[in-house]
Design a protein around this nucleic acid. Sequence first.
DNA 1: CTCCCACTAGAACGATCTCTCTAGAGAGAC
DNA 2: GTCTCTCTAGAGAGATCGTTCTAGTGGGAG
Lengths: 202, 202
Amino acid sequence: MWVMRTDERITLAMAELLRRQGYAATGVNQLARAADAPTGSIYHHFKGGKREVAEAALRSTGAAYIRLLPLLLDPYEDLVEGIEAAFAAAGEDMRGTGWANMCPVGTVTGEVADVEPRLREVAGEVMAGWIEEGTRYLAGRGLSEPGARSAMYALLAALEGAFILARGLRSVEPFAAAGRSVAAYVAALGDRAAEPGGAIIR
Amino acid sequence: MWVMRTDERITLAMAELLRRQGYAATGVNQLARAADAPTGSIYHHFKGGKREVAEAALRSTGAAYIRLLPLLLDPYEDLVEGIEAAFAAAGEDMRGTGWANMCPVGTVTGEVADVEPRLREVAGEVMAGWIEEGTRYLAGRGLSEPGARSAMYALLAALEGAFILARGLRSVEPFAAAGRSVAAYVAALGDRAAEPGGAIIR
DNA sequence: CTCCCACTAGAACGATCTCTCTAGAGAGAC
DNA sequence: GTCTCTCTAGAGAGATCGTTCTAGTGGGAG
């Protein structure tokens, strides 16, 4: 049977801990236990220690998350409808995991951007990548480039915020409302793009 | 000259630290230094220790934040226009503070909801209060009650998410886009409410 | 004045933190 | 077989954590 490499196990365990309890509250010993690896192995694979593990975890989950965008939206011919459905799916996933499945990138950014500047940088790079890829995707679905970019900013903001509200309120309602809001925005962008005057800029 | 009570100073310093570096990364000694109070005084005023101080900080900033809603939106006769302006103002405030002025309620919720259940509860109460008061306000501005509630969920989600994105990306663009998105949603709700058929539900 | 009590002040405690260090296991080269 | 090198394993160092504890200060009541 194939087994995961130790450094991958460590990265994955860190990502899981980050999204449940953040960076500062996660200890190296706890990480070692979760990854089923001794403390020494962590420092063997990640000479930068806890921070370097967190960087790797942010990058790896960042890459995984953006792949969900086409995965969730491709099945819907109507983009607006797809967005509402995607938000609803995210909400159900959160409910199913006991309101724990936060986005680690958002959690870490909110938590220690000042105290750990390197993590802020990495999170910023991941987010910028999301914007770029997401903009390309939405433009491919018919939005103007500036409209797609703006919609992507709005979508990510609504999504990250919905995670937080849902976690605090223990309700999927924030996801439902955020989805309707972003859908309305994309619909408005599309309407205006379809007008005789042509595409709208903002 | 009037001086602030010690417990108020402690609460305020905690709120400031929470929104800059979160709960876990904030130490009691650091809090004492920031509040200019000895460690003993903290435990005299807050027998529950660090957690109780955080609870007080969440409640007090929660009450302060919701007051901003009418303060920012009342000057605008057009609600949709006011929402865009309010988001822009929040973004500029964040830029002006070096991208540090997060919402402590959002930060703490994302960070330690699992590890500190009591803080999650308090954050949930604060958020629920925001929804209630905000719904009343938006209904007073002409939205149907269900529409106002949904808009409030969307507004808060977009706002909390914009804080995070702006902090990571060091840009006000997330606030601008989130503002446009929520504005588009409120406009759509209003349009439909103004239709001959009457108010829309969702 | 004395008494009282709210509060200040910070030393000290045990636990826990990140990180380092030494010892050895195990696979592949020769 | 032996040598080598990567990785495992966890004990330990040194700092810092949240909290408790004792001592002392200062202002108002009687």
